[in-house]
Amino acid sequence: MARSAATGEVEKSGAITGMSIPVFIGLACALRFPKRKGSTRGSATTAAVLMFAVGVGTLPRHPVGLVHLVFGITIIVLLSLRSSGPWFRPTART
């Protein structure tokens, strides 16, 4: 990315940055999974929807858009399953 910006390829640099943002947001959400909070599930689903949207938008120009699209759909489906709900419910304190 820095090389693209330094050589004057601003559009390429912006595309790389735009495609990386949903990945970093998803990673930050995934690091919060051990806390088992319901808001973590919602924010991860939102990040996956953003990843899906970026994948759809970049698919005609970049093959990386297909990766974003597939990962976004997979994350949305897995987090929306009923069986994933108990993981994010708070545990009873003793």
Rank of each mutant, 00 (worst) to 15 (best):
T74H: 00
M51F: 01
K37Q: 14
P63F: 12
T7S: 12
A44D: 07
I21D: 11
L78R: 15
K12P: 00
A48E: 03
L81Q: 09
W87C: 01
I75E: 08
V64P: 00
P63M: 12
M19G: 08
L31V: 14
V10T: 02
R89D: 13
S43F: 11
I75L: 14
L59E: 06
L81H: 11
R82T: 04
P90I: 08
I21T: 08
L79S: 04
A47L: 09
V70Y: 06
H62C: 03
T46C: 07
S84V: 05
L31D: 07
R3G: 05
A48H: 00
A53Q: 08
T17P: 07
G8M: 05
R82A: 04
P63C: 04
T40Q: 12
A47K: 06
I75S: 09
R36F: 05
K12M: 15
P22F: 10
M1I: 04
V10W: 15
A28F: 09
L66D: 02
V64N: 03
S43P: 02
H62Q: 09
L50K: 03
A2E: 07
L78H: 13
T74R: 03
G8H: 06
P34R: 05
R3K: 02
L27M: 15
S83E: 12
M19K: 02
G65E: 12
T58I: 01
I73A: 15
A44T: 05
S43N: 08
L59I: 07
V77Y: 10
R93D: 07
L81D: 10
F33D: 06
P34A: 10
R32N: 14
G18M: 00
T45A: 13
V64H: 05
I16A: 13
S43T: 08
A5N: 00
L27F: 15
G65Y: 14
P60C: 02
R61K: 15
I75A: 15
S20Y: 00
A30V: 10
V67I: 06
I76H: 00
T91M: 13
V54A: 07
F88C: 08
V56R: 05
I16N: 10
I25E: 04
I75R: 07
A53T: 01
H62A: 04
T94N: 13
E9C: 06
T91W: 09
G42Q: 12
L78D: 11
K35P: 01
L50F: 06
L31M: 11
L31G: 14
A15M: 10
G42Y: 10
L79C: 07
K37S: 14
V77C: 09
P34Y: 05
I25A: 13
G38C: 08
G85D: 15
S39F: 12
